[in-house]
Design a protein around this nucleic acid. Sequence first.
DNA 1: TTGACATGTGACTAAACAGTCACCTATAAT
DNA 2: ATTATAGGTGACTGTTTAGTCACATGTCAA
Lengths: 111, 111
Amino acid sequence: MGSMDEVFKALADPTRRSLLDELFEKDGQTLSALEGRLPMTRFGVMKHLKVLEEAGLVTTKRRGREKLHFLNPVPIRLIHDRWVSKYAEPWAAGLSELKKDIEEDSHGEGI
Amino acid sequence: MGSMDEVFKALADPTRRSLLDELFEKDGQTLSALEGRLPMTRFGVMKHLKVLEEAGLVTTKRRGREKLHFLNPVPIRLIHDRWVSKYAEPWAAGLSELKKDIEEDSHGEGI
DNA sequence: TTGACATGTGACTAAACAGTCACCTATAAT
DNA sequence: ATTATAGGTGACTGTTTAGTCACATGTCAA
């Protein structure tokens, strides 16, 4: 399974995120199928899929001469639990002291 | 405010994530203070802070000759709501596998 | 067995990025 | 006023990354 850093880096590219979206819509697609939906050659898509696979975000299964690609949401879930929630949760409940700090110190320009 | 892509790209670098961690611990730090905690020159840190600021993840406030940096968790919250939750929520099966992954991976890297 | 199809590899180019440095401006302290 | 401090800018270097291409392997179908 890819490291946390590999997952963050994999998610940093819009093409790779759209590949995940594509597999979210229809899981188990082949390289050729995915290629058809992106403005890029087969080789570019292949490289992106390799990055996603090494990060653990995509798993594969061979079927004859085809290679099926499946979305694996586990790394995203881990990022959520171990990183995102730390920053995104204080709106809900739990770390009330932090919540207070953020509200008092909000020098931000809103959304 | 930065686009979703800018936020993802900003989060892709481990130095920038550790800067967010640093501000999570102690908000409103100056550039010099942050520089002291990273194995990097002031200029490197400055560039990373600029990326974070352009993504909306950090806001600043001048105080005399100092520039205070504040964590703004709103973009992370947006990423969570609009993107991460889509993949992390559909979670019924595979829970035991997740536990296994967490336990295996919990002795891993910090950042 | 021939040919079409699906995927894979290594080399290559252009762009983006991390990090550093010399030099500069503005504020504070004495 | 002088000097030390905090931050800023533009140019530069080495590395990584996105994307393409020529070519090669394995698989199915007639």
